[in-house]
Simulated assay, not measured.
Amino acid sequence: MTNALELTAPVDTLAMEFTRVFDAPVAALFRAHADPDLLARWLGPHGLEMDVTEWDFRDHGGYRYVHRTEHGAFAFNGTFHTVRDNEFILQTFEFEGAPDMVNLEYLWFEDLGDGRSRLRGRSICPNTDARDALLSSGMEGGMTEGYEKLDALLAAG
């Protein structure tokens, strides 16, 4: 079953917030965010290939990955500020095609019981133009497709 993505951009803020329920235990959902091999299988819309070039998943560690499409390669990087297993990730996120436009991202992992979990996120952009550019770029569709791939990955165990 695919659960709906709820994505909002509260007026007069630099934030985007989302919520998504998964039919999987919180530990499995967290692991899919922590393990670079799993992450590469679901992050982003259909039709992307993803190469994780750097991955140090711990407090003050960092990451870099590249998405490849028929339109070219798009690289992203950031720093993991805080990682608490099965509970919380605080990280930065930067599209290398827009240097100095670094987002601060919060991810909360909630155990709903009965093998279900909820992911809540908040991304704070450096300015409203950056936020609005992300929202108009098809980000919501890409997140929805990525989470559909994540559903399949979690269902497969």
Rank of each mutant, 00 (worst) to 15 (best):
E49N: 13
C125V: 00
A28Q: 15
S137Y: 11
M139E: 12
L154H: 10
L43C: 03
D23P: 09
I89P: 10
T128M: 12
A73Y: 00
L134S: 12
L135T: 10
A156S: 14
L43V: 09
P99T: 09
D132E: 15
E70N: 15
A155I: 08
H67R: 02
E94T: 13
F109I: 05
Y65A: 01
L150E: 09
T79W: 00
L48I: 09
Y106N: 13
F57R: 11
L150M: 12
L119F: 10
G157D: 06
D23F: 04
P10M: 02
G113E: 11
S123N: 12
E87S: 13
F88L: 15
W108Q: 13
G141A: 13
V83E: 07
E110S: 10
F109S: 05
F109T: 05
Q91I: 00
T79R: 08
F93T: 01
H46T: 14
Y63C: 00
T79K: 04
Y106P: 03
D37E: 15
T92A: 01
H81V: 02
G115L: 08
A34Y: 04
D85R: 14
D132V: 03
I124H: 11
R131T: 10
S136Y: 04
Y63R: 01
G61V: 05
M16S: 14
F93P: 03
M101I: 05
R41W: 00
T144R: 15
P45C: 02
G146C: 03
T13R: 06
L153T: 09
G44E: 05
V26D: 08
H67K: 01
E6A: 09
L5M: 07
W108D: 10
Y63D: 00
F76I: 01
H71T: 08
A152E: 12
R31V: 03
L90H: 15
I89G: 06
M50H: 05
G121C: 07
D37M: 06
F74S: 03
F76R: 00
G78Y: 01
P126D: 04
P45S: 10
A133T: 15
Y65L: 04
E6N: 14
E94K: 03
T2Q: 08
A130T: 15
R122N: 06
R122S: 07
D37A: 13
D100K: 14
V11Y: 02
A73S: 14
Y63P: 04
F88G: 03
E87Q: 14
F74H: 10
L38G: 04
V52K: 12
D56Q: 11
P99V: 06
G44W: 03
H81C: 00
T92C: 00
R120L: 05
A9T: 15
T19F: 01
E94I: 00
A130R: 13
L5Y: 02
C125M: 13
F93V: 00
A27L: 02
F18N: 13
H81P: 00
S137P: 15
G47W: 07
L14D: 09
Q91E: 14
R31M: 06
L5V: 07
L43M: 13
G146A: 01
